[in-house]
Design a protein around this nucleic acid. Structure first.
Lengths: 183, 183
DNA sequence: CGCGTGTGAAACACTCATGTCTCACACGCG
DNA sequence: CGCGTGTGAGACATGAGTGTTTCACACGCG
């Protein structure tokens, strides 16, 4: 019974999303394999995490593709982006935290590419006069990551209903907390 | 030369804010004491982290007091809150991450009290018709933590100028990314 | 059937952070 | 001066997580 590498990756992502401090032993058990088999596919924890980063980047890139950030109004494009990113929110939170804890300098090129595309969406919104000009696109991209991650944690803690998390995220991001209809 | 406990705490906070994975050895060296001395004041790493949590909660509570959340418009109160919280942003990010990684269930009462007061500010804004009603106060509090933390990281990574971080945070939180002057 | 591949279980050594202890030294103070 | 307190340096034991290896077994396939 050949265990596929991708199966292991997804199981690891699931577990580490819920419990980021899990040991390799726990990861193996969660994937339904022995530690030896896990180690045959990933030479160590760092290798596993790096592969998870690849997986996350790939999934995020697909989500970004699916959101078609160049189409329609920037408003709607951002809505679609959050919507597509939502299923990955917990996993994204894990990756962001992991990235924050280690390698403060070396950043994977994939993140840079992703940032570039996301910032392009915000810049388009600014150039089309839909988005504010006094917030840098770099900050907006960071804020997007932060809010999506926070929504995943809030949902996991029961502070926000899971089905509201996406709306809460995108509404805050788009319109802020101030009522638009009152000056 | 009696080393004061508070000195150690502040040194530990400084270091762990920059490098959350630092070992007790590093903390001791950063504080200018030996590991033995550090251990005489804090019986272990968990004790140190718990004390740091206390310190952080105390500082945040002071920041909240200084912001006078009941005074003036909710807008301005939120501005003051972010302003007062800004110096603690990095430390707050550390505490939030630490809390997220461990003890998924047991939450310190201090956080609950803090949450309550912050949510009260948002609720006041809602009742006064200044803030939107379709975002729960629990979510807004989470978003506040997330954005303040994100601003600290972004500043540390050089993605946002340090002197802009506060404004970026509060502007996004208050007004979102959409231009208010265009429908 | 016999073979090779992939796996599980277990044992093992290694690393690292941690917790603990000892001892010598410096300093303040009576 | 002599004493006590607090400290630094270092040695040591411990435990957890990890990396590695061995061996037996189950399965698919020729």
């Amino acid at each position: 019974m050949t265990v596929r590498r991708e199966q292991l990756l997804h199981a690891a992502a699931d577990l580490l999303t819920r419990k980021p401090t899990s040991a390799m032993d726990d990861v193996a058990r969660a994937a339904g394999v022995s530690r030896a088999t896990l180690h045959r596919h990933f030479s160590g924890r760092s290798a596993l995490v790096r592969s998870l980063e690849e997986l996350g980047l790939q999934q995020l890139t697909e989500a970004l593709d699916a959101a078609r950030p160049e189409e329609g109004s920037a408003d709607e494009a951002l809505r679609r982006l959050v919507e597509e990113t939502r299923p990955l929110a917990g996993f994204l939170a894990f990756l962001v935290t992991e990235n924050q804890l280690f390698e403060p300098d070396a950043m994977h090129d994939g993140w840079r590419r992703l940032d570039t595309r996301i910032e392009a969406l915000f810049r388009r919104g600014q150039e089309e006069g839909v988005f504010r000009l006094d917030l840098t696109t770099a900050w907006l991209a960071e804020a997007l990551y932060a809010l999506v991650s926070a929504s995943a944690w809030a949902a996991q803690d029961g502070k926000v209903a899971a089905r509201d998390a996406g709306r809460m995220t995108v509404e805050l991001l788009l319109g802020g907390v101030r009522r638009a209809d009152r000056p």
